[in-house]
Simulated assay, not measured.
Amino acid sequence: MRSVARWGCVVVAVPVVLVLAVVFLVVSTEEQPAVAAAGRTCSVGMAADGTVAGFGEESLAIAESIVSVGAARGLPPQAWQIAVQAGMAESGLRNLDYGDRDSLGIFQMRPSMGWGTPEQLQDVHYQINKFFDVLLEVPGWEDMRPGEAAQAVERSAFPERYHEFEVAAQQVLGTVQGIECGTLGSDAAAAVLSAATDQLGVPYAWGGGTLDGPGPGIEIDAGVVGFDCSALVRYAFHQGTRGAVTLPRTSREQYAATSGADLTGQELLPGDLLFYGTGPSTIHHVALYLGDGQMVEAPESGSTVRIAPARLDGDFYRATRVL
């Protein structure tokens, strides 16, 4: 059904490790290390030319409207990010009065396809509400990668392009929500690591884990409730940033979404992502750097979420920084 490469985490059946896991649970819940939170350079903020991630004043105003409309409708930050990514891909997050054939506006909606009148498709609030209306009709959109959900709404002939704006969307959304350097930096990184270390001793579960906590595994780990490696990282970022940063589901997707902040040759800071594989297409594991040469990870079937020495050799590939 799914291969190891699909989820990008190691899966090894070692029944004897279950005995050791009980011992580790007792030790780890009593001895959680303090997480350093100083000395971070945050990746979110406005450039000297007034842009954020290359998007200017009009784009920031539209993003602010997306947040306002989404919050008023009780939609989670994930929905806001989906809309921002769609707008970035379709129009550069601008309210265009032109487009391919009769496409108009932020999301390049077409009057001839029933999206609304030309006048409505120049109204920012109408467009945002219409986008959210259609998004809410997409089955399972909450469990999709944001770019995948954007494609489900837009039905573009170029579905992969929405993924390109994942990190940029998070930066723009952070800025319009008033999350600035020094806030979405050390404090958020500490909160992310706290969310991860709170799960110490929770079983590894292949395919398991949600944004809200441990979840049932599949295949070799059917019946086990816990996390695989990428689900633990995704959970920790989502919880630690209170929904401001929601990473994709798999380790390969997480690397693709954060590789613009590749840390090759730079000093690691707590909260950095550690990826394992021989290249982007072979990444099979991800962990969170804790500092002091330690990392937190969900390693393999039969084990539990644990703290371990950070492995920076062997199949270690790259580190990236989100916060």
Rank of each mutant, 00 (worst) to 15 (best):
E253M: 07
Y255I: 11
A222Y: 07
V233G: 07
G293T: 11
D292L: 11
A298C: 04
A261M: 11
T250G: 08
Y289E: 00
P216N: 12
T258W: 04
G277N: 01
C229I: 03
T264A: 15
L290N: 09
G215P: 10
E297R: 10
R252W: 05
C229M: 09
A256E: 15
G243M: 12
Y204L: 05
G265I: 12
P214G: 02
D262G: 11
E253T: 03
V202A: 03
V245W: 14
A287H: 09
F237L: 08
G208M: 09
Y289P: 01
A257M: 11
G279Y: 00
A231K: 08
G302T: 01
P299E: 00
Q254I: 09
F237A: 06
D272G: 10
G240N: 09
L273E: 02
L232I: 03
Q199E: 07
R234P: 08
D262P: 08
V233E: 08
R252I: 12
Q266Y: 10
I283P: 00
D272S: 14
V202I: 07
A287D: 09
Q294M: 15
A298E: 04
R252M: 13
L200Y: 02
V202G: 00
G217T: 14
I283A: 00
S259T: 11
L263S: 04
V245P: 11
A222C: 02
I220R: 06
L288T: 05
C229V: 05
G213V: 07
P203L: 08
G240C: 11
E267C: 05
T246R: 15
Y235W: 06
A256P: 03
T250M: 02
P299C: 02
G279M: 00
P216M: 10
R249P: 14
S230A: 07
P216H: 10
L211W: 11
Q266E: 15
A261D: 13
I283M: 00
M295Q: 15
S281N: 12
H284F: 03
A244I: 02
V245H: 07
T264Q: 15
G215L: 09
G209F: 04
H285M: 01
S259L: 11
L273R: 04
L268S: 13
D228M: 04
T210Y: 13
G243R: 14
D221M: 01
